[in-house]
Design a protein around this nucleic acid. Structure first.
Length: 839
RNA sequence: GCGGCUCUGGCCCAAUUGGGAGAGGCGCCUGGCUUAGGACCAGGAGGUUCAGGGUUCGAGUCCCUGGAGCCGCACCA
């Protein structure tokens, strides 16, 4: 840890604010600039998407915000990076769509409403206004005319409409399953609301409860979600996380006959080659199958076990040290290849919702099965020969099959892959099994027993069953509940409002009830990027023609915490919409940038650690531009930024230095740069060309360094070179203003005005590069002997290999270093390098 | 446990993708300007590129082994 860190650790943020005294910035006053330019930009409104075909369209999107409070340091980073890209495309002349909105449904607003005895909307929309104001101050180039909030009835009307389209196609359905349950709050919790096995609200241990819930059939799209990854220019890390999450695994189904039962047990296995070693079976205790297979004399034991399993807390379940538990069901199956009679057990290490909820247990080749067999005294047979030095228990590695033969088939001696193929063919021919692919991905549980979300537009009628709310009755609006109405009381808040619940069935007109669940907020965010395209559209969730023009999103910027949630759900949504004929693209986001986190002193900021940095304080201290610049300059965008290691004061100093250049320019507006100093012009044009390349490859920190070099060179040219009146100086400073406009819009705008232009610099246009100025007269060639530099030569950039070799060998320094040794080999990489290998 | 990413001057980070170890910033030091300065200007010091091995004419970069840190998944049959 550096000294800066220690210093910060001993002072609070507010003390730092007080310690800083106003200093003379040579006329540079960010507060004045921020006050001056914001109203001008708001009047000019330069960032509205034109959508008139006048230029190539480009859709730039940043993950919309959850209105939990004011903006924080994380927003400041993602916005700075996103805005840099958007402003770059504006400068390049693209027709950029850069919308903003709010993900405004969700639990925190509901909790706040209970505490304050008010409606969640009060808290939500107040926070939205606070954030909107902060975003405007931050100088973001958003097209505000497309602003949306997912909690507006005009928005969630279409969320409901889309749900119904999924429902019609069987992609939304209801089923009973075990879900996270908080016994204290008497409510279901989403996975993300379970923190290390405890309820995020009350801290009580979470258990499981069987409830009927709504699901989206994401599993149906598992393979396509995998396949279409090749269309995406996303960080490999995120694609990998999605691949792992989807968890494709190749294997086989195998059927096991059960004594006294017609229906065989079907299992999924990735190791069909070990079938001869299947010495018992295990079914998930919470699967229907378990209840069906239990014999009367084992009923009591099973019931006891099931009760225990249900009350097992997440904390226990997640423990890796946990002993295997289980109970014998009393039934027997027949191993289809050995003919052995094998016991059927129930154990919670088998999951009800993966595969078929039942496994063949092969202790010889599976660690978990070995543990279980050992504990309960079940037989173990090795069917793969472990390597000679193997000393462990279950052997999961490669090796020849053993003990794997019957009258009809033998796998003995075959390697794992060959044995798999052979046994699958055999099972197939006997009708006992088949090759198959299984996925780890589960269907998306979308219902929540919460108030502040989009109500599920289904009516339950005793006569007609599930009846969709007719489209023309959408939105199915939330009732006006507030304060104590929303407090947990065992049923969802909507269910408690009988007046809201009781409706006439749209089909038969009889008495019926509304569904009382609301949708997961990830449903809202799975299509918001489509609503932006035509936020006023009333004939559907979005105008298909607009979608045709703008989709897919060219660049999406946001945090990687959504790697397998939002980003996967949105991909699923777009594919489903495509299949419905509502969208021609199959992927929502072509390119993805995941920014790192802003941390402090090596740890993420938190109240309990007391290491939070307040964005507003930082902006008061250093100004918007310096904060933005610090975010961009900190390092590669994907890396975390430790604020304790950053120097926003240094960023401010640089901005001031750049800003002063504008006041130094003496060449009049419109002077011809071609008459200016060539050396400075080379640097200017090199900087423009490099900046474009660096932005395209997302190396924004390096681009800032290049701008700094240009500023340094320009200052030098003014003070100790061709002087302030040289047109090349004006060209350089104008370039600085335009490049800087991507990161520091206020400073750049002020410079632009000083240079004699009308606002806004944001649309000045990307400066044109003169290719002639990028060519160098000479380059330095390094001459090495055995890889060590021994001489440098100034040569023409187009020098040939042979000439260069001759020149290098003729060098005094080289001849001296060779010291009479012969030359074995010469490697020439004209014009930069020659390596002489001595004999 | 499995998987991924990262490691370069005191600190944040560059390095034309296998070719000169250093672009930029912070900090530090010296000098100038200054009543003074944390402002401005000029200059400077500082590294066994985490360790070891390999490939190569040549390795910060590629491969292997190990270390440290961060992150994801975690009884998925």
């Amino acid at each position: 840890m550096g000294s800066t860190t220690h210093e910060c650790g001993s002072r609070t943020v507010s003390e730092q604010v007080e310690a800083e005294t106003p200093i003379d910035r040579g006329g540079y006053d960010f507060n004045v600039m921020q006050a001056k330019w914001r109203p001008v930009w708001e009047k000019l409104d330069p960032f509205k998407a034109r959508d008139d075909g006048s230029a190539e369209r480009r859709y730039a999107l940043t993950m919309f915000s959850y209105p939990s409070g004011d903006l924080h340091m994380g927003h400041a980073e993602v916005f700075a990076l996103h805005d840099l890209l958007s402003r770059y495309w504006f400068q390049k002349g693209y027709d950029v769509l850069n919308p903003i909105g709010w993900d405004s449904f969700g639990l925190p607003a509901e909790n706040a409403a209970i505490k304050r005895n008010e409606h969640p909307a009060t808290y939500t929309y107040a926070n939205i206004e606070t954030q909107a104001e902060s975003i405007r101050r931050y100088g973001m180039s958003f097209d505000w005319s497309r602003r949306l909030h997912t909690s507006d009835p005009e928005y969630y009307k279409w969320t409901q409409w889309l749900f119904l389209r999924f429902y019609e196609r069987g992609l939304a359905y209801r089923k009973a399953s075990f879900v996270n349950w908080c016994p204290y709050d008497q409510t279901v919790l989403a996975n993300e609301q379970v923190i290390q096995g405890r309820c995020e609200r009350c801290g009580h241990e979470v258990t499981k409860r069987e409830l009927t819930q709504w699901y989206f059939k994401t599993t149906e799209y598992a393979q396509r979600l995998l396949d279409d990854m090749e269309l995406l220019q996303w960080p490999e890390e995120i694609l990998l996380m999605q691949r792992n999450w989807i968890g494709r695994s190749e294997g086989a189904f195998a059927n096991f006959q059960v004594e006294g039962r017609d229906e065989p047990i079907k299992v999924f296995t990735t190791r069909p080659d070990t079938l001869f070693g299947a010495t018992f079976m295990v079914v998930a205790p919470d699967a229907k199958l378990a209840a069906e297979l239990v014999t009367p004399d084992q009923q009591a034991a099973f019931d006891e076990y099931l009760t225990a399993v249900k009350s097992t807390t997440e904390i226990e379940r997640l423990s890796t040290e946990r002993d295997k538990t289980g109970v014998f069901l009393g039934s027997y199956a027949i191993n289809p290849v050995t003919g052995e009679r094998i016991q059927i057990w129930a154990a919670d290490y088998v999951l009800a919702d993966y595969g078929t909820g039942a496994i063949m247990a092969v202790p010889g080749q599976d660690t978990r099965d070995w543990e279980f067999a050992e504990k309960f005294g079940l037989p173990i047979v090795r069917t793969v020969q472990p390597s000679a030095d193997f000393e462990g228990k279950a052997y999961t590695g490669e090796g020849p099959a053993i003990n794997s033969a019957n009258d009809e088939i033998s796998l003995d001696g075959l390697g794992v892959d060959q044995a798999k193929a052979r046994i699958i063919d055999w099972l197939d021919s006997k009708g006992l099994g088949e090759r198959t692919i299984n996925y780890r991905l589960r269907d998306w549980l979308l219902s929540r027993q919460r108030f502040w979300g989009a109500p599920i537009p289904i009516i339950h009628c005793p006569a007609c069953g599930e009846v969709p709310v007719p489209d023309d009755q959408l939105p199915m609006e939330l009732p006006d509940l507030r304060g104590a109405d929303l407090a947990p009381k065992g049923v969802s808040p909507l269910a408690a409002d009988r007046e809201w619940v009781e409706v006439d069935c749209p089909k038969c007109g009889g008495k019926a009830e509304r569904d009382t669940d609301t949708m997961d907020t990830f449903v809202d965010s799975s299509w918001y990027f489509l609503r932006y395209l035509s936020p006023e559209y009333t004939d559907g969730p979005y105008d298909p023609a607009a979608a045709e023009r703008w989709m897919s999103v060219y660049q999406y910027v946001g945090g990687k915490e959504h790697a397998v949630l939002h980003l996967l759900y949105a991909r699923f949504f777009v594919k489903a919409l495509h299949d419905m004929g509502l969208l021609s693209v199959v992927e929502p986001f072509t390119r993805l940038l995941n920014q790192g986190q802003v941390i402090n002193q090596g740890k993420s900021m938190s109240k309990s650690l007391g290491n939070g940095v307040n964005l507003g304080d930082q902006i008061d201290l250093y100004g918007v531009d310096a904060v933005r610049l610090t975010m961009v300059f900190a390092g590669p965008p994907a890396d975390d930024i430790d604020w304790a290691d950053m120097s926003p004061g240094g960023s401010l100093k640089f901005l001031q230095r750049a800003w002063r250049l504008a006041g130094s320019v003496e060449a009049p507006l419109g002077s011809d740069p071609s008459t200016g100093d060539v050396e400075l012009r080379r640097i200017t044009h090199r900087t423009i060309a490099d900046s474009a390349e660096l932005i395209d490859s997302m190396r924004f920190n390096v681009m800032v360094a290049r701008i700094m070099e240009l500023v340094n060179a320009t200052r030098k040219a003014i003070d100790a070179g061709p002087g302030a009146a040289d047109p090349a100086v004006r060209e350089a400073v104008e370039t600085v203003a335009v490049l800087l406009s991507l990161v520091a819009p206020y400073t750049a705008e002020d410079m632009w005005e000083t240079l004699g232009y009308e606002p806004t610099v944001a649309k000045a246009g990307w400066p044109e590069v003169d290719p002639a100025l990028l060519v160098q007269d000479t380059v330095t060639c390094v001459v090495q002997i055995a890889g060590k530099v021994r001489d440098r030569l100034e040569v023409a950039p187009d020098i040939g290999d042979a000439d260069l070799e001759q020149l290098a060998l003729a060098s005094d320094a080289i001849q001296k270093a060779l010291d009479g040794r012969g030359v074995r080999k010469v490697i020439v990489r004209a014009p930069k390098l020659v390596n002489v290998v001595p004999a």
